[in-house]
Nucleic acid binder design. Structure first.
Ligand SMILES: [Mn+2]
Ligand SMILES: [Mn+2]
Ligand SMILES: [Zn+2]
Ligand SMILES: [Zn+2]
Lengths: 141, 141
DNA sequence: CTGATCCTTGCGACTGAGTCTCATTATATT
DNA sequence: AATATAATGAGACTCAGTCGCAAGGATCAG
């Protein structure tokens, strides 16, 4: 039993929700995928495993995974929301190339600290944040 | 003639585009509105002035104003994009209350500087950025 | 076992912000 | 004024995401 299974199971139990084969397939696939993906890509990956799944169930389950803290959702400038799993990937933000679309991950503890300072100063209780820098990547500039 | 008029006029001229009464009405209304607004709100405000305007024209002109650097567009977590004019409002980012929806503006030059450092380190040419901190505001926490 | 309760699923219909098409009208240029 | 080019409004269209609902499955009381 993986860590993410345990977390999802307790999350569901606490909310009186059930761990179904579909939810298990979604959880597994999300944690096998080590890149950003969108909901319909996830549907396709699961269907290639010969498993039946509906778009609605995938959307519904992704919401649950986000609420459980296992997945983050973000808008990287394209039309669709993209997702990535959390365990094994510490928090990071993105540089987004407006020419090729590439998303470069970065992490700067000092920026995060200063964000917290801003919140303290304004008496705001931060829960999450999203920092996106748009421009040209190394190979596109 | 206001500064924004001059800028928009040169922008249009340079691109061989035309200054129409509709574009003038949109520009004026955008600069009279000192808060975040969405495209359909703008349509309503202009129509209340007894001016005919179509949604398509408002969407198209807002894109031009963004390209001209006169307006910024952002997603504050709700469904619709919101806009605000630039002149007279220096750059800032937002704390967004997930309970009441309020957007609190802040500006931290140090954070901006560190963002530039990240870009330099990764050889990325920054054009714009969006930093949103989601949580609970003073009155909702 | 039987029935009541409650959750989940898949399907397809629906929503709604934003975009596009196109016939008509307006602006800029000469 | 004539010409070339761009802009407009109306409504059709797109498409990511949501919702309603009927059918199915687990759980539990009696
Ligand atoms: Mn990432
Ligand atoms: Mn603002
Ligand atoms: Zn690039
Ligand atoms: Zn609030």
């Amino acid at each position: 039993m993986t860590k993410e299974h345990d977390i999802f199971k307790s999350f569901l139990a606490e909310k009186r929700l059930k761990l179904t084969p579909q939810r298990r397939a979604i959880l597994d696939t999300v944690f096998e995928t080590h890149r950003h993906f969108d909901a319909d890509e996830l549907v396709e990956i699961i269907r290639h495993k010969e498993k039946r799944i509906s778009r609605a169930t995938v959307y519904r389950t992704l919401d649950l995974l986000v609420k459980a803290g296992l997945v983050t959702a973000m808008e990287l400038g394209e039309a669709r929301k993209v997702y990535e799993h959390v365990i094994g990937h510490k928090h990071h933000d993105h540089l987004i190339c407006m020419k090729c679309g590439r998303a470069i991950e970065f992490d700067d503890g000092f920026i995060e600290l200063l964000q917290q300072k801003v919140c303290d100063r304004l008496n705001f209780e931060a829960q999450t944040h999203s920092l996106r820098i748009f421009g040209r990547c190394e190979s596109c500039r």
